[in-house]
Design a protein around this nucleic acid. Sequence first.
DNA 1: GGCTCACACTTCGAAGTTGACATGTAGCGT
DNA 2: ACGCTACATGTCAACTTCGAAGTGTGAGCC
Lengths: 204, 204
Amino acid sequence: MSLRYALLGLLADEPASGYDLTKKFERLLQRYAWHAQHSQVYPELTRLAADRLVEVAAEGPRGRRTYAITDLGREDLRRWMLNPPEFFSVRNEFVLRLFLLSTLEPEQAKALLRLVAEANDKELKELTDRVRQFDANAGPGAAPSMQRMVAEFGLRSFQLMVDWARWAHDHIDDAAAAGKPARNRAKRTTARAKRPGPRTAPAR
Amino acid sequence: MSLRYALLGLLADEPASGYDLTKKFERLLQRYAWHAQHSQVYPELTRLAADRLVEVAAEGPRGRRTYAITDLGREDLRRWMLNPPEFFSVRNEFVLRLFLLSTLEPEQAKALLRLVAEANDKELKELTDRVRQFDANAGPGAAPSMQRMVAEFGLRSFQLMVDWARWAHDHIDDAAAAGKPARNRAKRTTARAKRPGPRTAPAR
DNA sequence: GGCTCACACTTCGAAGTTGACATGTAGCGT
DNA sequence: ACGCTACATGTCAACTTCGAAGTGTGAGCC
C-alpha cells in the first residue's frame, strides 16, 4: 500500500500528472524512501481514481492528465499517516552489503569502505550546496520549511555514512581476524599509523 | 538477487538450515537491511543448491537439512560484493512517512515526531546496552569486530533519528506555515538556536 | 522542413514478496 | 502417557515490482 500513499502524499502537496509524479519520485523519494517507475505509477493512479481518492483535474497537450487529490483522498492519507505500524518494512541493499562485509578479505572490505565514504561525501557536498542556496533564498532567520527539514535529514544521513565508513575503514585491520577463525593474527601487531581520521565537523 | 546473496552471505559465516536462516533474518537483517520469510527462504535454498552455490552438509532430526556454502558460492558472493551498483535500491516506509509529514497539521506532525523520537530512543538504549555487554566481553582496548562495526552503524543511525526528530519537532511550528500558503509568517524572526543539535559525540 | 529531445502514457511477461494453509516431529515438563 | 512448544519444511494464490518494448506529441533549433 505504500506506493499508493506515496502518490497520495505527493498529490496532497499539489496536483500533478503521472509523468510529474514519476519525476518527483526520482528527485525526492528514490534515494531514501521509495522507488517507483512510471510503469507502476500510471496504473496506480488509475486505481486511485477508481477509488475516488484522486480525480483528473485537467487535461493537457500530449494526452497529459493532471490529477488532484480529493477530500476522500486526504482523509485516507491522514488515516494512514496517523496509524503507523509497529514495525516498518525496510529494505536497503546498501546496509545488507555492510552486514556482509565480513565475508570479504580485509583489504577488499577497506577498498569498498573507501568507495562508500567517497560516494557519500560527494552526495553530501552536492546536497550541502543545494541547501545553502535554498537557505540563502529563504533569507536568514527564516524558519526551516518541511522541505528543508527533510533535506536536513539527508544531510545528516550522508554525514553519518561518511563518518562511519571512515571510522570502520580505520579499524578494519584489527577486525579482520576477529570475524572467524583467527587466520593470520598476531603477526599483525605492526604499526597502525592511526590516521587522524579527518573527523569532519558536524554538518553545518 | 539480494535475497540470494543475503543467504549466501549468512552461509559464508557458518552452515545453517532454512529454519536457522529465517531466524537470522529476523534477528539480524529484518530491521535495517532486508526481510524474508521462510516461504521465500526454502525455495531459494533449493535454487542455490541447484546452482551448486550451496550444498547440503548434513541432515538432522526433523527433516532438517543443514546447508553449507561451496567454493563456487563464495566466489559468486565475492563477485557480487565487489561489484556494487551505482545506486542501491532503498525502500523505507518510515522515511517515506517523514517525507509526507508536511501533509499533516502541525500539531499532528509534532505528535508523530515525538513518537519517532521516543521509539528510536528506546531502540538506541537497548542497542547501547547490548553493545556495552559485547564490548565488556571483548575486553577493553580490543579492536572492534565487524559485528561491532555494524552495531556502531545502528547506534549512530538511531542517534540520528532521535536528534533529527527532536530538532524537527522544535522547529515545526514555523515550518507549518511554510508548506503551502504563508499563513502566519514574519512574526517568527526569533533567534534560531543552535542548529546542529546535540551532535552527540561519536560513540567511542 | 527536418531533427532532436523532453514530454506523456500503455502494456505485459518475468521476478520477487506476502500471508495463509498445510504437515509433521523431537524434546521437555508433569 | 499427555500436552505443549519449538523445530522444520512445503506450497500456492494474490499482489507488487521490475524491465523492456511500444506509441505518439509538442517545442525549440538550425
